[in-house]
Simulated scan of single mutants.
Amino acid sequence: MDHQTDASAARTCRRVLARLRGLRVLGVLSRRIGGIRSGSEGMIYYVDAVGDRILRQQHPSRTRKRPEEPSARFVDHTLAIADLAVNFLQEANTRGAEVVRLAPEHEARRRYTDFLGAPQTLKPDLYVELAEHPGDQDVEAYFVEVDLGQESLPTLLGKCNAYEAYRRTGTEQRAYGSFPRIVWAMDATRIQTAERRRDSLRKGLDGSPSYPPGAYIIAPLHETATCLMESYGRE
Rank of each mutant, 00 (worst) to 15 (best):
E98C: 07
V86M: 12
V99D: 05
P119Y: 08
A72V: 08
A97N: 01
T113A: 06
S71N: 10
R110G: 02
A72P: 00
P119V: 05
A85Y: 02
S71L: 11
L102D: 03
H106N: 14
R73S: 15
R73D: 15
F115A: 07
R73F: 12
F74V: 13
E105F: 04
E98S: 15
L79K: 01
D76N: 13
A118M: 05
L102G: 01
E91V: 09
N93F: 05
A72C: 02
H106E: 12
R109L: 10
R109Q: 12
V100S: 03
A82P: 03
D114W: 09
A72N: 08
D114G: 08
A103K: 10
V99I: 15
T78F: 14
E91F: 03
T78I: 08
Q90H: 06
L116T: 11
P104Y: 07
T113S: 09
A97W: 08
R101M: 02
E107W: 08
H106Q: 14
A92R: 00
A108G: 03
A97C: 10
A72F: 01
R73Y: 14
P119T: 03
L89V: 13
N93V: 06
A82M: 14
N87Y: 05
T78V: 14
R109M: 07
R110V: 10
S71I: 12
Y112V: 05
A85W: 02
N87A: 15
E91I: 05
V100N: 01
A108I: 00
T78W: 13
T113G: 02
G96H: 05
A118R: 09
L116G: 13
L84S: 08
R109F: 06
L79C: 00
A118W: 09
F115Y: 01
